[in-house]
Design a binder for these strands. Sequence first.
DNA 1: CGACGTGTTGATCTCTCTCAATTAGAGTGG
DNA 2: CCACTCTAATTGAGAGAGATCAACACGTCG
Lengths: 246, 246
Amino acid sequence: MEILDCAACPLRSLPAFTEHSSEEVELIKSIKLDQIDVKADRPIIHEGQVDAPLYTLFSGWAFRFKTLSDGRRQILNFLLPGDFIGVQQRMSASSIHGVQALTAVNLCVFRRDILWELHRRAPRLAFDVTWLTAHEESTVDDTLLSVGRRSAEERIATLLVLLYKRAAILFRVVGRERSVPFPLTQQHIADGLGLSLVHTNKTLRKLEKRGMHRIVDGRLELRDPAAMLNCADLLGEGPALPRPLI
Amino acid sequence: MEILDCAACPLRSLPAFTEHSSEEVELIKSIKLDQIDVKADRPIIHEGQVDAPLYTLFSGWAFRFKTLSDGRRQILNFLLPGDFIGVQQRMSASSIHGVQALTAVNLCVFRRDILWELHRRAPRLAFDVTWLTAHEESTVDDTLLSVGRRSAEERIATLLVLLYKRAAILFRVVGRERSVPFPLTQQHIADGLGLSLVHTNKTLRKLEKRGMHRIVDGRLELRDPAAMLNCADLLGEGPALPRPLI
DNA sequence: CGACGTGTTGATCTCTCTCAATTAGAGTGG
DNA sequence: CCACTCTAATTGAGAGAGATCAACACGTCG
C-alpha cells in the first residue's frame, strides 16, 4: 500500500475521533516513518522484543498477548483501527507482551523516540497518548473482572457486547445491517477469556441456541441485545472514544 | 499529619526513584492541594465516582477494584507508596473502578486538572505520568495472565513473588531481616487472583507446608525463593522502577 | 462476655478442563 | 478431478481443580 498523507487520513474523519490542528497533523506526518502490511496470524511485535517502534493500527484487527513457558496463552486485549501499539514496550523494561495480527493489518510506523518528542513539542498529542494508554488499561481491567469473577457464559456475553460496540462505531453498519465484522476464531475467544477451546465452543453454542447472537461468515449479530447485556451485567457502560495518533 | 514540603519529600530520596529538577519540584508543590489520611478499609475513590482528584500514595497500601452488581469483587492491582491514583477516572468516561485503602494510608492530593497543565508546563513530568500509567497497565497484564492461565498454586506464588519484590524495594529490608511488610488478608489475595477464600487458604497452606514461604504478623518471608520463582514461571522479570509524582 | 473478623479444615458439588472422535471447508499437488 | 492435508467448529464422556457449604479456633474489641 502507498504511504498515505496524514493530512488526508481517512481514519481521522470518522465520527469516532476528535480533531487535530493542522500543526499537529504536520508533526505527526513528520515523525511517521512508514506504513506497512502484516499478514493475518503474523507477529507485529515479538514477546520480549525491546526495540520495537510505535505503531498506530490503521486497518484490520490485532491483539496483545502473553504466554507462559509451557505455551499457555492469554490474550490481553484486542486492537482495532486507531489503537496505539507499543507504548508499554517503550516504557517498561519488564513484563513484555507480544502483538499479533488477527486479520491482515496495515500499520503506521512511527519513530520510536516520538513519545518524548511529543511531550516536548505537542502536549495536546502527548495528552492523547496518555489518554489512550489509560483507556487501554481500563479495557484490560474489564477483562480481568470477567476472567476473575464471571462465569463462562457471562464472560462470553461481555466480550461479544463490548466488541460489538467497538466494531459498530468503527465499521459503520450499512443499511439495515445488524451485524458487525467479527474475525475472531473460537480459539481467540478462549484465549481472551481464560477458557478452554472446548468449553468456549459449548458456551457459544448455548447462547446461540438461546437466540442471543449469531456468528456467521466472520460477522457478529446480536439478536437479543437486552439478554446479552443482562447476562454480561453491563449496564450503561458506553465505551469512551479514543483519540488515535493518526 | 502536617502537609509536607515536596522539596523535602522523603519518598523521592529512596533509591527506587529518579531525580526531579528543582523547577519540577516547585511545579509539583504548586499543584499540590493537600495531604490527607484515610483509615484502613476505607474508600479512597468510590466505584463510579467521576469527580475524583488525583492522588499520589505517600504511605500505606491500597488497591483498585471492580465489582459486579451481585457483589463479586475483583481486585485489579495493589498500590504501594509512589503509585499514582486516579488517572483512569480522569481519562475515561466509562468503566470505572474503585480505590480502597488496605492499611491506613496518607495521600498527596493534586488539582484534578493537573494532567493537562503538566503536559503544557512540564513535559518531563507528563512523560512520567504516561510512564506510570503504562507501567500500571503492565502490572494488570501480568495479573490477567495469572488469572486466565495459571493454576491456583501458580497464581499465589506469582503474587507473592511480585509483591515481595516491590515491597523489598520500597521498605528496605533491615539487617538480616528476610521479610517484608505484607498487610493483605487472604480475602484480598483471593479477590486479586479470582479465587475463592477457602481455596486460597488451602493453597497458601500447601505452599507454606512445602517450606516455600511464611506469612506471620503482617510480614511475608520467602523461604525458598527458587521454588517460588519456579512455580510462578517468572524468570528474570525484574520490576522496573516507577517515577512517582511526588 | 458476646460479637466480629480472620484463618483453618473437612465434605460435597459443579463448572470447566482434558481426551477423543467427527464434520466441514479451503488449499495443494499430482 | 480427486486424494491429501490443515484448520476451525462440534459433540460426547470422564476427570479434576476449584467452588460452596459448614464448623470451629483464635484474637480483638466494645
